[in-house]
Design a protein around this nucleic acid. Sequence first.
DNA 1: ATATGTGCAAATCTTTTGCAAATTC
DNA 2: GAATTTGCAAAAGATTTGCACATAT
Lengths: 166, 166
Amino acid sequence: MFSGALIANGSQLGRSKQDTQITRPSMLEELREQGVRITRQRRLLVGIIQDSPRHLDAFTLLNIAKQEDSDINLATVYRTLSLLKNRGLIDELDLMHLQGEKHYYEAKTSSDHCHMACFGCGAILEYASSAFEELKRQITTDSGFQIQVARLELGGLCEKCGKTKA
Amino acid sequence: MFSGALIANGSQLGRSKQDTQITRPSMLEELREQGVRITRQRRLLVGIIQDSPRHLDAFTLLNIAKQEDSDINLATVYRTLSLLKNRGLIDELDLMHLQGEKHYYEAKTSSDHCHMACFGCGAILEYASSAFEELKRQITTDSGFQIQVARLELGGLCEKCGKTKA
DNA sequence: ATATGTGCAAATCTTTTGCAAATTC
DNA sequence: GAATTTGCAAAAGATTTGCACATAT
């Protein structure tokens, strides 16, 4: 069972084969258009989230931000994350609670992708597929539910751990 | 925005159209086979989870159990949930954090199904589809990841709320 | 100038843990 | 009888909130 202190995340988009391209649009512009006040702290946090290849939890985000603005506070981080989430600019993930109950955040992408958490080594892999988009379409058509947020998380063994433990 | 005190859950399996049948096998037998000691508390909790049409959180489960055994403790509930989760007998859900950060649990079913949380009225709908199973197969084939747990959660507006707010 | 956002500290909520007593096999 | 599980109370971890001060438009 994985029990390391850090998520061994080499995930970077495209680590696994996938058939859909992922792109991330600019968040600050979007916020301005929505009439949201842009503060020093928000600019900083949004920049970090947008640039980061990793899934950040609130505390990690705080520590990265502190390198630029040593006075920034954890409460501000949480308030900003909440704002971005409510405006649909970031997705919130649990990553199968591999590291306790905290949440992880990432800039919303053009097409939804699933996250695979390896119970063996703790790696987080991403995978985008047109079949996922197709499944969402099917559900909407079939049930009449209008999807605003979609989260597909898988837990199991990555290719390497699967071979080791088999 | 939904802000009621209880999840308005009329979900009962099969509320929405779906193309895959869901069945729930017996947990106690499975536990015995796995050599797990069956205590009074475990028997009670497992029975409640198995019978419940709703997604239970730890505290709700405790209160239902207290009607039978007024001494049962919240720690025991958490320890039992943890046992069942690790043995693959129940699934853990977040239901899009519609009601804070707590988790919800349900007996694992023969085929995975997705949970749709309505931001309008708080209803939780379930939907099982062969396309979901097919997507999992595709991901496994394509990435080599061996899936042990799958969780697909959608947030948005149910059919009724979609019409009201459109 | 005024509404809004921030830092700080305390509070809240959920889940986990240490330990002595009770229970199951 | 020995090993495991439980209840209780306390601790831990993540997130939220009240309020006085600072900032953006």
